[in-house]
Design a protein around this nucleic acid. Structure first.
Length: 461
RNA sequence: UCCCCUGUAGCUCAGCUGGUAGAGCAAGCGGCUGUUAACCGCUGGGUCGUAGGUUCGAGUCCUACCGGGGGAGCCA
């Protein structure tokens, strides 16, 4: 048995082989033969199968060879006289493994809207676009591990269920075994001591705090796993369940962190461009005609590093009309970020040293008393793809910051212990994996960049 | 959560200022062809998102709800 990618790329005319796959389309000749385009998901291209009356099993199953049907075919590979393919398989034997009634099969041999395909998420990976996304997603995952493994980072599995109630990164999904229907009737304060973990538990919004534990024990490390945010976000770049990559490195400052983030993104892009050439060509032609150019440009240039304060200066001195005013101390709006990365610098930028009032407690305070060592990587079209910082390693400063943010240091006793015993400067960041896939593929909507998207009011499949 | 747009055949859409529905593609059948987003002809297919309302009459106007999309906020 051979996979179609292998047949198309490596096998030679004359070889006898068997392939399995699904029919994409079929072109008939009444003279008794037909062309079947077979795809098995191993690559974008189909294998052209030539069947005729000599093909065992063809005559009796002609009606069943429709778009979507699963076939197994044995035959001889031949050089193709037609245009569009190097080789084609002349079938000696054909068997229909599974039929697909053309009257009801939802995928037709025509273009479908992404919205429609989202409603049939169980079948959409059988389409060109979604199988290509799946392969790019796979290649990007491999590139992420390569990048860190080559640098001897430890892959750490941080917990999915957490009881540290306020990690600070937004609304959390509650995890419970309590009988909610019954509790709703009683209407008293919920007693979490009766719950599975003996206290309130939630799905993680970040593995950062736990990653810091390993960074300050076993050295540079990274997490790569699912993350959950219960925010009621309805945009093309937010998911309730998404995958995040979070490296954490001891003896690192913000500059080291910015360099790592840049090297990391460039590495993943380069790897995908190399290993998914056919899929990337498809995205460039059919999805977004500037992806290849954009990605190459990112690989070839350094990211622009701009302090928050300088960014404010650039924005106020540009003669743009802003819907939201630009003012030091306020977070930048989408329109501001887009202007900086898409119009002003026209490449990825790293904004750093944000006002402390708009950033979380764990970011290291600068000596100016106003800013923290935060960084955001913004890329054209997507916006923020990475958020990170140098962490506050000074116990007294960290405690003071927690109180400033209305957090109870007691709750974070173990996090503070890392500063109490052998504290070191360290830094890290979080990369939204699906946003990276958006950047790589040119897909507009993040819901098409994950196999089974979870968004408000949607968790089908 | 807020703002805007949208919901008509399997899919993508048209249907102007209200008079009970149409195209392309898909599908079925037939023809043609070493074809390749194949091509040509014929045929079938819709209680116009749901519930109310205005009107002699509503796909078309109004209200509510539900679904989808885009933008904003939250962030990755």
């Amino acid at each position: 048995m051979a996979r179609i990618k292998e047949v198309r790329d490596e096998r030679n005319p004359g070889e006898e082989l068997t392939v399995n796959g699904w029919v994409r389309t079929r072109r008939d000749s009444k003279q008794g033969f037909a062309f079947i385009e077979l795809n098995d998901g191993s690559c974008l291209g189909n294998l052209q199968i030539v069947v005729d009356q000599e093909t065992k099993g063809f005559a009796e199953s002609t009606k069943e060879i429709t778009t979507g049907a699963a076939l197994t075919i044995t035959g001889t590979l031949k050089e193709s006289p037609g245009k569009g393919q190097r080789v084609e398989l002349h079938a000696s034997e054909l068997k229909v493994l599974g039929t697909a009634d053309p009257e009801t099969f939802p995928l037709q041999k025509k273009r479908h809207s992404f919205e429609y395909l989202r409603e049939i998420a169980h079948l959409r990976p059988r389409s060109n676009t979604f199988s290509a996304i799946a392969r790019v997603r796979n290649a990007a995952s491999a590139a992420i591990h390569n990048f860190f493994q080559e640098r001897h980072f430890l892959y750490v599995h941080t917990p999915i269920i957490t009881t540290s109630d306020c990690e600070g990164a937004g609304q959390m999904f509650r995890v419970t075994t309590l009988d909610l229907a019954r509790l709703a009737g009683i209407q008293t304060e919920i007693d979490y001591s009766q719950d599975f973990f003996g206290k309130a538990a939630s799905l993680t919004v970040s593995g950062q705090l736990e990653a810091e534990i390993y960074a300050t024990s076993t050295g540079p490390c990274y997490t790569f796993g699912p993350t959950f945010r219960a925010e009621n976000s309805n945009t093309t770049r937010h998911l309730a369940e998404f995958w995040m990559v979070e490296p954490e490195i001891p003896f690192f400052d913000l500059n080291d962190n910015m360099q790592l983030a840049q090297d990391f993104i460039k590495h993943v892009i380069s790897h995908v461009l190399e290993t998914c050439a056919e899929d990337m060509e498809f995205f460039n032609q059919r999805i977004e005609k500037t992806v290849l150019e954009t990605l190459q440009h990112i690989v070839d240039h350094d990211f622009e590093r701009v302090s928050y304060t300088d960014a404010i200066e650039i924005l106020t001195s540009s003669k743009k009309e802003w819907e939201f005013p630009v003012e030091w101390g306020h977070d930048l709006q989408s329109e501001h970020e887009r202007f900086l990365t898409e119009e002003h610098f026209k490449k990825p930028i790293i904004l750093f040293d944000y006002p402390r009032t708009i950033k979380p407690f764990y970011m290291r305070c600068n000596d100016d008393g106003k800013t923290v060592r935060a960084m955001d990587v913004l890329v054209p079209r997507i916006g923020e793809i990475i958020g990170g910082s140098q962490r506050e390693e000074r116990l007294d400063v960290l405690e003071a910051r927690m109180k400033e943010c209305d957090l109870d240091p007691e709750e974070y006793w173990w996090y503070l212990d890392l500063r109490r015993y052998g504290t070191v400067p360290h830094a890290g960041f979080g990369l939204g994996f699906e946003r990276l896939i958006q950047l790589l593929t040119g897909m507009q909507n993040i819901r098409d960049c994950i196999p089974f998207p979870r968004t408000p009011k949607n968790a089908e499949f």
